[in-house]
Amino acid sequence: MGERTIPIRPAPSQTFEYLSTRKDELVGWARKFSLFPYPFVTACCAMEFMAVSSTPYDTDRFGAALPRFSPRQSDLLMVVGTVTHKQAPILLKVYEQMCEPKWVMAFGACATSGGFYQNYAAVAGIDRIIPVDIYVPGCPPRPETVIDGIMRLQDRIARSRHPIVTKDF
């Protein structure tokens, strides 16, 4: 039986072993880079959603490239396209199934305000049904507009409070 040498951990260096920060900044920093989107895609804006999801625009830079097709696993509800009154209960159900924290993006003119569908069929803006955090204008929005919307949402997440234990902490 040979003698075994237990390797001794090197003494910790004195630099960057500890970090002090505000809890909200740390949590916000983590959350803003893990915006898993749930695409609620109903209309022609889907084409532009595909464009913004494609490689040249690389939304993975913002941690927002991996669509989750279960609302339970997603953080960002992207409502892409016209929502009709007949479809509104489905949208509400999807929103209610998402876990906190959750954010909603109204993608395009129709989701924002109903667009040019001001009639019996269309909901004139999804904010009549669910709260919306960021509105992306355009019919359809250019990918740059969507990325701008994602970045503005990230800024807001980074600046907001993130209670994780109680409402005070």
Binding site: Y120, R128, I129
Partner: peptide, 14 residues
Amino acid sequence: KQREQPLVPYRAGE
């Protein structure tokens, strides 16, 4: 032309 018949009640204030 503008008459809507929503299935989901609108949020308060909207």
